[in-house]
Design a protein around this nucleic acid. Structure first.
Ligand code: FES
Ligand code: FES
Lengths: 146, 146
DNA sequence: TGTATACTCTACTAACATAATAGAGATTAT
DNA sequence: ATAATCTCTATTATGTTAGTAGAGTATACA
């Protein structure tokens, strides 16, 4: 698994929309400013997320983006997989790798599958509701700290 | 973590040398043929592995490559890290990522660290002796099967 | 119905990484 | 000597990443 800038931006955007869930749409401009993402890049990412069924959009004045599902029903792993592709460390786990003549004779395959499973266990058990809660706590903690 | 062709080839080469440990050098040509690796590519990989302290070479006739340590002292994770770089899913875990203004405010960081730790736990607990044993068993099993 | 505000879509590009390939050079056993 | 083998630097083709550019479409509301 490798998280690209695009992937990271997507996650931050879904998190921002999660914090705003139930309170109307947020504009691209707003999302870009809050997470420090190049606006034209974010436009594309949001269109991808829309095609992936993660967000909905409203056009025109008072438009913007909203989550199409509540945050507790969006898992971290779903978004990562959709934007950055497979979570596996090598494509042979998913049969897209040509380096091994015979997969059944490869001692590495099971290891990469173990790594993949360990990763799934983490990213598929965290929802954006969990992340939103963490974010709120973190913000409170930092405020008190100052 | 993403295993490239180069990384996979390096692992297969170290495994081949592990199986041959204690019986003199193996030539590039031999290693390339056995693991089906482009020979000129493998030349470079072996030079890298030499610089990394994993293998030694003998030049001239009766030359070739040998492991510079016994297989039980070479861990899978060492080779992966050396050839394919950090095992972390995003460079921010290692402070090379510019996407997060303030790492202390990022709810994702701990998650990527968890993924990294889970991966370490696997790849840093497997030695090439383990892999060589697995390979031998696999070969025996397949031979009996036929 | 005009217009400002916002999303939509396609194309393009610079920089970098990957997976090799090419070829001349250095070393050693026999 | 010479054949076999490793050594080193350059080059290249292909693909991916991280954007940028610009014209187009929809909607609220005065
Ligand atoms: S089948 Fe995946 S590395 Fe061999
Ligand atoms: S610090 Fe790693 S994604 Fe924010």
């Amino acid at each position: 698994m490798h998280i690209t800038y695009k992937g990271d931006y997507a996650l931050k955007t879904i998190l921002a929309l999660s914090l705003h869930y139930g309170s109307g749409p947020t504009t691209i401009h707003d999302l870009a400013r809050r997470a420090d993402i190049p606006i034209k890049f974010l436009e594309q990412i949001l269109l991808d997320l829309k095609r992936g069924g993660f967000v909905e959009s409203r056009r025109g004045k008072v438009g913007g983006y909203l989550l199409s599902r509540p945050p507790q029903r969006i898992k971290l792993g779903e978004v990562v997989r959709f934007i950055d592709g497979e979570v596996e460390p090598i494509a042979c786990v998913d049969n897209k790798y040509k380096g091994c003549k015979d997969i059944s004779k490869c001692v590495f395959r099971n290891i990469w599958q173990d790594v993949a499973r360990a990763t799934f266990k983490i990213v598929d058990n965290i929802t954006f509701e969990d992340l939103a809660k963490k974010e709120k706590k973190l913000h409170t903690a930092l405020t008190y700290q100052i």
